[in-house]
Design a protein around this nucleic acid. Structure first.
Length: 485
RNA sequence: GGACGUGUAGCUCAGAGGCAGAGCAGUCGGCUGUUAACCGUCAGGUCGAGAUUUCAAAAUUCUCCAUGUCCGCCA
């Protein structure tokens, strides 16, 4: 038989559906990408619907030699045939091919890739290939599922999804360096009398930036709709070169009226556990693969660098145990009285009033408590202006949720609802009232206690997938010096 | 922004002054139950770039370029 057109009467079935509820003996049509063609007889086909491949059995005498030759690594084919119970060991079903059509070839002379382990760095440069690998297809299925679970969690609990602006005119949010948004030409922009760029002549009539946080706007939503959350892209122009920072990332920011810092911590813990549980229950194949992948990698590492638990065990452990809750003051004392601190094993000193260093946080999470830790009541001087002042007048009702391996995944606070206290804080921190008059209005007209937090979406996906670099849980990472694709 | 590391075949890497190497991928041939299939065959190189030391440099030294890890800033 030569190349045969597929019979349009038969509709395509997704591989996930065949593996879950296939009917032996039925004629099915499948389409997908070739992961392997072994022994001139067995094709491992993947169509992205599931982690698992479907085995296609080809009697090569029945097909044109040129057609079979064109079935190379990552070519795209359509197969019609009968679904059978597999005679081999590695899989339950297989399809005996009756008709094969080449949808998209992949010339091996030009296609410089192979079915083998690649470095994450190399794959970042090969966009089409990256997402077809076992690792990344698993990561991106899970990423989708986490996003879905976020919306489901909040919707089921009566929160409203609020879309806060991506372009903002406020430059007082204080969450980091911002990307400027302008239509003015870099050379030849109009100048004002002081010789500075005149943004009054810019598109919006003022200087504008990409958002670093939707929180201030979300507060307005919370004090009207009661419970809201944002989930959108966020931009930080920080020159941060680490495995847990992106210049463009997605952030979730719930904001709740009538909530205090304890409600906030309860929400953060319950929410985190829900997301992890959702993936454990719905994506066991992808998680099992990622778990095994990490185990294989760890075998080649020194014992002291290995993680104390595997991925699945870590996720279950987080879901099944309460997060540890301590104050900043307790955290400082624990670190200062720890063996490694006394023996000078830490690079940085720690005194009350200083920010906890990564190494201190990691000791608390990974050595002392062996689970996520929520630290609250930080010194006011190392936190943002909008956080609620505690009665000691030294600390604010802020909390950070620290996860093993990643550090801060959630940062939140109860917001300062007392107008006079907020104004005093802004004056101390040199933030001009006229830039945030709309934010102050919220305290003037029907203000109330409220709280919320920001969760770094990619950091949560990083934790759940067990990947080690945040660039490998987003399809097209933007980092300093890199905006490919 | 700071510190350190890495650039050798399409990919992953070895080579530590003396002929440019291996595995996988690719070519060609073989193989009707494979699971990163296997066996044989052939081909594949400006050793990141430019200088420098040397009889001799992929290797020493310097500059530049690219890239990674860690730290800082944060989510």
């Amino acid at each position: 038989m030569d190349t045969i057109k597929t019979d349009q009467q038969v509709r395509r079935t997704e591989i996930k559906s065949i593996l879950e509820s296939g009917e032996v003996g039925a004629t099915v049509l499948v389409k997908g990408w070739v992961r392997a063609f072994r022994a001139n007889r067995f094709i491992a086909l993947n169509d992205g619907s599931t982690f698992n491949n479907l085995q296609i059995v080809v009697d090569f005498e029945n097909f044109d030699e040129e057609l079979l030759k064109s079935i190379s690594f990552h070519s795209c084919i359509s197969i019609k045939g009968q679904l059978l119970e597999s005679q081999g060991k590695g899989q339950k079903y297989e399809i005996l091919a009756e008709e094969i059509e080449l949808l998209g070839g992949s010339n091996p002379d030009d296609y410089k890739l192979q079915p083998k382990k690649q470095t994450m760095e190399y794959l970042r440069e090969q966009a089409h290939f990256r997402m077809r690998t076992n690792t990344f297809s698993a990561v991106f299925r899970i990423r989708h599922a986490v996003a879905f679970a976020i919306n489901k969690y909040f919707h089921d609990r009566g929160y409203y999804y609020l879309h806060t602006p991506i372009i903002t005119g406020s430059d007082a949010e204080g969450a980091g360096e911002m990307f400027r948004v302008t239509t003015l030409e870099p050379n030849g922009a109009p100048l004002n009398e002081a010789g500075e760029v005149d943004y009054q002549q810019d598109f919006f009539g003022k200087a504008t930036n990409l958002t670093v946080s939707g929180q201030l706007q979300a507060e307005i939503g919370a004090l009207a709709l009661g419970k809201v959350y944002t989930f959108g892209p966020t931009f930080r122009a920080e020159n941060s070169n680490t495995s847990r920072h992106l210049a463009e990332f997605w952030m979730i920011e719930p904001e709740v009226a009538f909530a205090d810092i304890y409600d906030d911590m309860d929400l953060a813990e319950d929410f985190s556990k829900y997301l992890i549980n959702f993936i454990l229950e719905n994506y066991p194949d992808d998680l099992a693969f990622l778990d095994k992948r990490i185990q294989d990698m760890e075998k080649q590492m020194k014992k002291e660098d290995r993680r104390p638990m595997g991925l699945l065990d870590t996720l279950r452990f987080v879901v099944e145990n309460d997060f540890e809750r301590i104050t900043y003051t307790e955290a400082v004392n624990l670190v200062r009285n720890s063996k490694p601190y006394k023996k000078g094993r830490f690079k940085f000193e720690l005194e009350w009033g200083m920010d906890l260093q990564s190494e201190h946080e990691r000791w608390l999470v990974e050595k002392k408590f062996m689970k996520p830790v929520i630290v609250r009541d930080y010194p006011k001087d190392i936190k943002a202006f909008y956080m609620r002042m505690n009665e000691d007048d030294k600390t604010v009702a802020a909390m950070d949720v620290l996860f093993p391996g990643i550090g801060e995944v959630i940062g939140g606070s109860q917001r300062e609802e007392r107008l006079d206290v907020l104004k005093a804080r802004m004056a101390q921190m040199d933030i001009h009232e006229d830039e945030l008059d709309w934010y102050l209005d919220l305290r003037k007209f029907g203000g109330c206690p409220h709280a919320g937090f920001g969760l770094g979406f990619e950091r949560m996906v990083l934790f759940i997938t067990g990947m080690s670099n945040i660039r490998d849980v987003i399809a097209f990472p933007r980092t300093p010096g890199n905006a490919e694709f």
